[in-house]
Structure formats: C-alpha cells, structure tokens
C-alpha cells in the first residue's frame, strides 16, 4: 500500500509527445519493461490466481451455476451485512476526512519542528502493530474503560461501546487516519500560499478565498485519502472482529465465518466477489468523477490501487 502524491503530476500540462525514438532506444525501452516482471509475478500468484479460484468456486460449488449469488440476493442477512458494511465504511471515511483535513492544514502552517511532531503523532500508530492498536481500543472502550470514564465525568455516560458499531467506527477511524492525513497534507503543501493572498487582494472574504481557491486545490488529496479509506474499510477484518460483535458483523467477518465455521467456499467466494465488484465500482466512480473535474484530479484513483 503506497500513498502516492496526488498533486505532483496532476497540475502539470501533458508533456509534448516525443518523436519516435531511434531503434536502439526503442529496444532499451522494451527491455526496461522487464523491471515490472517481479511485481507482476507476485500479483499473479498471490492475487489474480486466488481471485479467479474464488470466482470459480463461487460458480461451481456446491453445484455449477449462479446458485450462490441468487442465495446472496435472497438472503436478508447478507443484504443487511453488505449495506451495513457500506454504511460503516462511508461513516468512517467521513469521520476521517473531517478529522484529517484540519489536522493536515495545521501541519502546513506550523514551524518545521511542530510539523515533525504532528507527523510523528500520525505515523507512530501507523508503525505499531494493528493487533496491538486494536486490543488497545478493546481496553479503552470497555464499559469501565478510559473512554467511558471520561464520558461519565462530563455526564454523558456510561455508553456501551465495545461490541457496537459506534465503537468499531471510532477504532477504525483512528486506524485509518494516516491514510487521509498524508495525501491531504501532500496536496496542501503543493498549494502556493500566495494564491490565498491573491484572492484576498481581489476582494474575496477569507471564507470565500478558502472555499473558492484553497479547498478546490486541496480536493485531489481529499479524494485520494477518502477513496483509500473507503476501499480499506470495506474489506476491514481485524478491528471489526475484535472491537465489534458477530451480531454487528461486517462483510469480511461474514466471509471468514463462511470459510472457517460453515466451510461453505461457494458462498464465501460469492461474497468475496461481491466485495471486489463493489470496490471496483467505487474506484471507477471516483475515476469518472475526477475525470469530469478536469486535469486537476486525474490520476487519483489510479494512484491508489
């Protein structure tokens, strides 16, 4: 998973098309394609083959046909889980964007030393084991945990968090935060501060200068981060299964149950394919949206997957 800079190449005009290179150069270019072979091999063995196998299983087990898919659509539980997964992913994304945007902005205006501190605050959890962080949330979210003690102290608690979607959302948002902060910060760092001054000098009120100039220029970063979080959230397994409950399960947990407890590879395959399709649709949608917005946002979706 890499967070690529969404703006670096975005604003640059299309380079003029180079004239046809001499034959020697062309050969060298073709040979250089070999550099991609190791990565393609890994993808093929560990992603394409298993994905195709799942697809195959979903239409062959227990008997050939689309039985698994019709069962999915017919089953209320599945529909509920898919919708719940989509909703939770959306909520986590919104929470992440709302928290990350001001945070990233703060990073662009403070001094170098404070920027380092803020970056470390984002990144240190990122480098910590996901399991360790999730178990930390289990401890924090207990009925008599720190979060509830604080809520109780201000007269809002206790609230049941562990095993609820609220708890899962909170924990997931924290886990996903770096994925929004980093691309948004990158996008903001590329914005010339004088643009805001220019807008002010032209008569724009500070709020207008922000919404008409700064915000649109930072949106590619937001789109990149939000897509990343949305896609990751859709298939998230560890945090929902530890912090959440089987009654409020998300799609990945449900697939795991099909495989590990019900040993129903057909249904699991159908669910996995559904998840993949939803994810691809989402990426395609982002791509279309950003393309219609012109050169500014192109390559966002592409830079992520």
């Amino acid at each position: 998973m890499t967070v690529t800079s969404p703006v670096a190449g975005a604003a640059a005009p299309a380079p003029p098309r180079a004239p046809d290179p001499p034959p020697g150069r062309r050969l060298a270019r073709r040979v250089s394609l070999l550099l991609a072979v190791p990565a393609l091999l890994v993808l093929l063995v560990f992603f394409v083959v298993p994905a195709l196998r799942l697809l195959w299983l979903s239409v062959t087990t227990p008997e050939p046909g689309f039985g698994n898919y019709t069962a999915l659509v017919a089953d209320d539980v599945t529909t509920t889980i898919v919708l719940r997964t989509l909703l939770m992913a959306a909520v986590v994304t919104v929470v992440c964007v709302l928290v990350a945007y001001p945070y990233a902005y703060l990073m662009t205006i403070v001094s170098g030393r404070w920027r380092g501190v803020l970056l470390a605050v984002v990144l240190v959890p990122f480098w910590t084991s996901l399991m360790a962080r999730t178990f930390a949330w289990v401890v924090l979210l207990q009925d008599n945990g720190v979060v509830n003690q604080v809520l109780g102290a201000v007269g809002l608690g206790p609230v049941r968090l562990l095993g609820t979607t609220a708890g899962v959302t909170l924990a997931m948002a924290q886990v996903m935060l770096p994925f929004v902060v980093l691309p948004v910060y990158t996008a903001m760092r590329g914005i010339d501060r004088r643009l805001v001054d220019a807008a002010l000098s032209l008569g724009a009120r500070p709020v207008t200068a922000f919404t008409r100039v700064y915000l649109p220029l930072s949106l590619p970063g937001v789109a990149a981060g939000a897509t990343l979080v949305m896609v990751l959230s859709l298939g998230f397994y560890v945090t929902p299964s530890l912090v959440g409950s089987p009654q409020q399960s998300m799609l990945a947990q449900f697939i795991s149950v099909q495989v590990n407890q019900l040993v129903d590879f057909g249904a699991a395959g159908a669910l996995a394919v559904t998840l993949l399709v939803v994810t691809l649709l989402l990426l395609g949608g982002v791509r279309m949206l950003t393309r219609t917005r012109g050169a500014t946002g192109s390559g966002i979706a592409g830079g992520l997957t």
Binding site: D192, R194, L195, D197, L200, S201, L202, P206, G294, T296
Partner: peptide, 18 residues
C-alpha cells in the same frame, strides 16, 4: 486585505491553477 480595493501582482503570478 479584501476590503482595501488595491490591485496586486505577485512575482509567482499567483494565478488560480484550477
């Protein structure tokens, strides 16, 4: 600044790229 009604030209042009 936005109420001073003075034109301003910057070294970096400061055109809105979008």
């Amino acid at each position: 600044a936005h109420r001073r009604n003075l034109g301003m030209v910057f070294q970096s042009y400061a055109l809105f790229p979008h």
